[in-house]
Design a protein around this nucleic acid. Structure first.
Lengths: 226, 226
DNA sequence: ACAATGTTCAACAATTTCATTGAATAGCTG
DNA sequence: CAGCTATTCAATGAAATTGTTGAACATTGT
């Protein structure tokens, strides 16, 4: 192998690796990856949840597919996209944990837009499991209902913010509550938690999101399909 | 928190995360990350090893620094760049392992340029440790000498390809050899191994590169600084 | 103070990326 | 088959990325 073709190979090789990197190099694509780590979505669903045009989402999905980061399965006129490998979520997790630790702007943003957040009591997965065993706690899934249906923490109630008001009637005033959502920075659960606290409830927020819970192999519950 | 500022925050947040992703989204930058996972380098060293202009390398390093993926320490007129966190190497590892599994072009490239490669006998870290304990093996570090000096597998000899010929005189014909380099796809060790095999030596190639060895917490040896 | 050296910055042209629009495709339904 | 819908494709323009060149900066050694 001569020196020139060695250089050539090296360049081509790193270019292939970079294909994968590019998947994670755009804010909108990360948002899509985040949604896909909850559950598979159709193009339209992704477009609506990200407030992007369908064409734009489709284009991003082509990039993700090119990087072999997502898979499609067609079902009638629908195209269901999902993460191609559990490791994709793993990489995304490591990347955002590192970013959260090292890029101070992230913490800064979270604080600036939502400064009451830090006053919320957090709880980790191990502790939540203990409380579930004791049976002394009500769990609230703050994500959109379709994500809840695709899988949630056992015995959790589906309470997206829009439905919070109607749920208040059902919740006994003296119970303890844990809320969770997509991820630690996703804030859906924080909003729900703050509103509940205003109503006088004792509320905790789960540190991790549902995908981490599932990835850790902890028990989950799915909506039965009838 | 109203709906608009929620959207705004979400966008800004993912933008921050994407800063980190961008670090891994370019072939040249990945090459730089790979070199920095061997040992810290100056701008000039990186430029020479990557065949890029100094200015271009400097620019890439700014991107990496912006993503908080590398740190600089200045020493005289030199700027020593290093990975800012072990997790950076972890992410890069996961990314390229996933890429190697899922992007078929990578395997294809390796085969096309170097089809004898697959005929080389490989050996993993655990097995190598066993052989070291037996004392029945000679280890060859095929990386450039500066990377060897910064840290290598204990008792390994520094034999970059250029020095192979002069080293042949020293190697007893009947000994068994294990060669390693920067990573599994780095091929420096494969080239050395093929040449050694032609000379009649019994050669193995270590599956992992030196950074993986170090990251696994296995023993390493450094050149003493006199 | 001066020149030498390693690094960064600024300006540029070439290329790529991104979101939008509107058209094309492909699978359902009546 | 026609009409409908979900998705993809193609074309556009705006913006960002990349590598080059040459100048600017900062530290070292004379």
């Amino acid at each position: 192998m001569d020196n020139q073709s060695r250089q050539e190979l090296k360049a081509l090789l790193y270019e292939q690796f970079a294909r994968m990197g590019k998947a994670f190099a755009n804010a909108r694509r990360l948002e899509i990856i985040d949604l896909l780590s909850q559950t598979p979505h159709t193009v339209e669903e992704l477009a609506s949840k990200t407030s992007l045009s369908v064409a734009s989402v489709s284009q991003h999905l082509q990039v993700l597919r090119n990087a072999r980061v997502v898979d499609v399965t067609r079902e009638g006129t629908y195209a269901w996209y999902r993460l191609s490998d559990d490791r994709v979520f793993g990489i995304w997790c490591m990347m955002r944990d590192l970013a959260q630790d090292r890029i101070s702007e992230i913490d800064h943003l979270l604080r600036q837009y939502f400064n009451e957040r830090e006053t919320l009591e957090t709880i980790d997965a191990a502790e939540l499991l203990r409380r579930i065993a004791e049976g002394s706690i009500i769990i609230i899934d703050a994500r959109p209902e379709d994500e809840y249906r695709a899988g949630h923490i056992p015995s959790a109630l589906s309470v997206p913010i829009e439905k919070l008001e109607s749920t208040l009637a059902v919740l006994p005033k003296n119970c303890e509550i844990v809320a969770y959502c997509r991820a630690s920075y996703c804030l859906l659960s924080d909003e729900v938690a703050l509103l509940l606290r205003e109503q006088g409830y004792r509320v905790h927020v789960l540190l991790e999101g549902f995908p981490e819970w599932r990835a850790a192999g902890l028990p989950i519950e799915k909506e039965s399909l009838n």
